[in-house]
Amino acid sequence: MKFRFPAALNIAALLLTSLQAVAQTPEAAAPAKAAGMSSQQIMFWVLISLLIFLLLVLLLSFVGIAVQMRPQLRKVYELPTVRHSWSGRVLGLLVGDATLVKGEVRDELLDHDYDGIHEFDNDLPPWWKYSFYATIIFAVTYVGYYHVAQAGQLQGAEYETEMRQAALLVSPDADDPNKLTTYQPLATPADLSEGKSLFASNCAACHGQNAEGKVGPNLTDEYWLHGGEVNHVYKTVKFGVTSKGMVAWKGKLSGKQILQVSSYILSLQGTKPAGAKEPQGEKETAGKPVVKL
């Protein structure tokens, strides 16, 4: 098996020249435009493919030369002045000796044993030590870059930046959790009655029949975890708070029904039901809907 590297280069050069000539002809340019690629893009990918081809040729040539010269390389490797040198260990990889990676195993027992268990005096394999050294270099570089020079963002700051960028991409419509609505509390008896029915069938299991609080917080006092104004309550009911077990009622209740429930909740302010749960959150006086009879 003989590889002629100059001949391979000549073939590659002729191939490149012919491809350039083909790419410049109108017949070749028409399919390129039809496919949406310019002639420069075609030439780029042709050159990349040619580079990969040349690298494969070089690799095959190197392997072929190493295989043909393996007996001569073995004789050079067996020389005492070569075998134990760094270049000799690299040469050993070509002739099948992986000492550079695996290390040398010495069957030498240490002069102590524990319950009949003997210990060999072997070093750690080079691949393990190289990996350990790489982790040390990485750790020093990481600390210097992020903590000393402060050239990069830590995970917390990076997360906040990504969240701010994501907020800019959210569509500003009614389904945007970052955009607060501008509703007014419903105050008619019909709306509050409907809100009461919806509350009893959907919310009472967690907040109690009188909103005194069970698993969820008490909704009749002046303390709120996520805001006590009607639009904050509306947002909490619609989108939920999954981290605290509050489910999102979006898709289960209509916008009108969510506003009716929110208005009914605000109408319960100051009712002081029996067995009310202790206050949670921050104090906030919410405007109660005024029922117009």
Rank of each mutant, 00 (worst) to 15 (best):
S38G: 07
T161Q: 14
K179N: 05
R89P: 10
F132H: 10
A167P: 05
H207D: 08
I42S: 00
H226I: 01
K102Y: 10
D173A: 06
E222G: 09
S197N: 15
E229A: 12
Q165N: 13
D123S: 15
A248F: 02
G96V: 08
W45T: 11
V230W: 00
D111N: 01
K256P: 03
N231V: 07
L54N: 14
Y145M: 10
H232C: 03
P217M: 02
Y264G: 13
R164V: 06
V291P: 07
L192A: 11
K238L: 10
S262L: 02
P80N: 08
M37W: 03
L192G: 10
Q20V: 10
L253K: 02
D123N: 15
L16T: 05
Y130K: 15
N218F: 00
K235E: 06
L93S: 07
P273L: 05
G216I: 03
L73M: 12
L51S: 13
G156V: 14
R83P: 12
S85Y: 00
V22F: 05
S201Y: 07
W224N: 00
T236Q: 08
N231P: 00
I65M: 11
F53N: 12
L266C: 07
N218S: 06
L51I: 13
S85E: 03
V290G: 11
S85N: 10
L124T: 13
L186M: 09
G195D: 06
S85D: 06
G116N: 01
K256G: 14
V233T: 03
L100I: 13
P126W: 12
Q280E: 14
W86D: 07
D191R: 02
A187F: 09
L54F: 09
S49H: 06
G156N: 15
L293A: 05
L192V: 09
G216C: 04
F3D: 08
L59H: 11
R70D: 07
N231D: 04
V290N: 12
L253V: 11
V105N: 12
L253D: 05
G96I: 13
E108I: 04
C206R: 03
L266V: 02
L91E: 01
D115S: 08
G116Q: 00
F138D: 04
M1R: 14
F239Y: 09
L124I: 14
L19R: 01
E212A: 06
A276Q: 12
Q20M: 06
P185A: 11
Y142A: 12
L168P: 10
G281P: 02
V261H: 08
K102F: 09
A276R: 04
A286H: 02
K283P: 03
L168C: 11
A28C: 07
K283A: 13
L293F: 03
H118Y: 01
L169Q: 13
L55T: 14
V90Q: 03
V63Y: 06
H112E: 02
K238T: 11
M43H: 00
S39K: 01
G195N: 08
P26V: 01
V233L: 08
D107N: 07
L93W: 11
E278G: 07
T285S: 12
A66K: 12
G240V: 03
Y114T: 06
V261P: 09
L51E: 09
N218Y: 01
